[in-house]
Nucleic acid binder design. Sequence first.
DNA 1: AACATTGACAACCGCTCCGCT
DNA 2: CAGCGGAGCGGTTGTCAATGT
Length: 234
Amino acid sequence: MVRAPFYDKNGLKKGEWSPEEDHKLRAFVEIYGQRNWRQLPKAAGLKRCGKSCRLRWMNYLRPEVKHGNFTEEEDVLIIKLHKQFGNSWSAMAKCLPGRTDNEIKNHWHSDLKKCGKRNPMTADHVKDDSSCPNEAPQNSEGQSGADSILVVTPANMILESSTLSPATSSTTELSSFVKDTYLPLWNNPFVADNIFNQDGYPSSMENYGFELPLPFDDMYYDDWAYFLYDLMQV
DNA sequence: AACATTGACAACCGCTCCGCT
DNA sequence: CAGCGGAGCGGTTGTCAATGT
């Protein structure tokens, strides 16, 4: 299913990897770690270029890489993420533990793309939905899309709020309590960011002039991110 | 049964980014 | 600040299997 092995003019092997090569690469990386990919093949006794070794490790040999079919949940998430990130496969991969950018890209081109065409409703359904709170695309100025608000949360986590942000979406359905208490945080993301200490746990809110009956006491920053994310869905 | 088409996926290629000197 | 090298990323290709005609 892949290119037959061959040697290029520099004597470097290309094409399909043999089990023996896989074994050498895996053993070497597990002992010495992922660094200096250019030197690695020589040190590991592989007649491959560093790039090829890196790719093989990242996409296939890494223990955390999941092999096998994508689940329905993963499919839905990928469609949502594609709405959010476009073709930033690596960003999408960060939101899908165990899946590589290459896998997602292949899956998209071979399967999900045509699903979107076939069923535009699916695409509409996920429109403007921020499905991954971990990452958001930024332009060179560190901003996302023109109409977006960037919410920087702990650990440099960035939430992109599009038109669905609480400030602009169906606020009528947003309880006044939530609006009055959390929207100031929403609109002051850097304050929100500071409520967490370096370990990712919340510091005292009174330090920042907030008296919130919060779920914060035992709220880790991930929870906080998802809490904001949930607000966006209101 | 033979041939053509499509799907799936590993791997390659070229470009960009980033850190170091 | 510029140049260089390594790493990472996204697009593309090549090949085989499955399916259709």
